[in-house]
Design a protein around this nucleic acid. Structure first.
Lengths: 123, 123
DNA sequence: TTGTATACATCGTATTCTTATGTATATTTG
DNA sequence: CAAATATACATAAGAATACGATGTATACAA
């Protein structure tokens, strides 16, 4: 019997907003970090967004598998003691896809900012 | 028999990106225009985004109905000749919800901009 | 030794779109 | 004037993508 800390984590945003951006987030992280494993990605996003975006396992792993199936990432398995760890790296196709995805999202945000007259804060 | 112009309209963005933002777009338009009808909303968004965002009927009408069911908008029917036209207006609850939705989306964008190091263009 | 953290994964469900279809009136154009 | 296009509502099947729960297992800290 395993007790899971369901933890009712406070999502700052409606979960729908994340839809369509998860792949982009994962690709961008891989572009910046050469290779990462799943759990590491969830923690990195959590840390970088100060808990505002929490990627769930049920969303992440299928996404990673899809990226692999599409040839955007390659994998290598490593053993930490007896525990398996699966590293993901961008393929050349994946690097190009990352640039495209980021461009597309930026463009979409431009449009939304103009349409909704909102003013996001930038660094 | 009715021939429909399926028109393979060129979506500038992956359709997934729109997910979760449609309600916000509709609410914001209603906040700015007092009352609007469905078809008018699709045309206004198309025009304001220079064809970049095209709201389909299959997405819009269920969304409007959901907003009504949630009490965020009220409706009144008008007849233009024999053709029916259904106007939507924000309720007080809807006005508050609009502010919340816009705040939430702005906040989400802040987070995405920081996370992905992207720089949207602002007016 | 018990709970928490690390680490993988899948499945059922909900939401929210797309695409296609249906119905009908009004207007423009060849 | 007939045909095409635009206006205007609506629903339904299907796909995509997330959530939440569940499952398995090792490592470490209290």
């Amino acid at each position: 019997m395993y007790i899971r800390c369901t933890n009712s984590f406070t999502m700052t945003y409606s979960p729908e907003l994340l839809k369509g951006t998860l792949k982009t987030i994962v690709l961008k992280l891989l572009a910046d970090n050469k290779k990462m494993y799943g759990y590491e990605i969830t923690q990195k996003v959590k840390e970088m967004t100060r808990d505002k975006i929490q990627i769930t396992e049920g969303a992440l792993y299928p996404t990673l598998h899809a990226l692999e199936a599409d040839g955007l990432v390659t994998t290598e398995v490593e053993y930490i003691g007896k525990r398996v760890r699966k590293y993901y790296s961008l393929s050349p196709t994946g690097k190009a896809a990352t640039r495209e995805k980021l461009k597309e999202l930026t463009n979409f945000m431009d449009t939304m900012i103009a349409l909704l007259e909102i003013k996001p804060k930038m660094a």
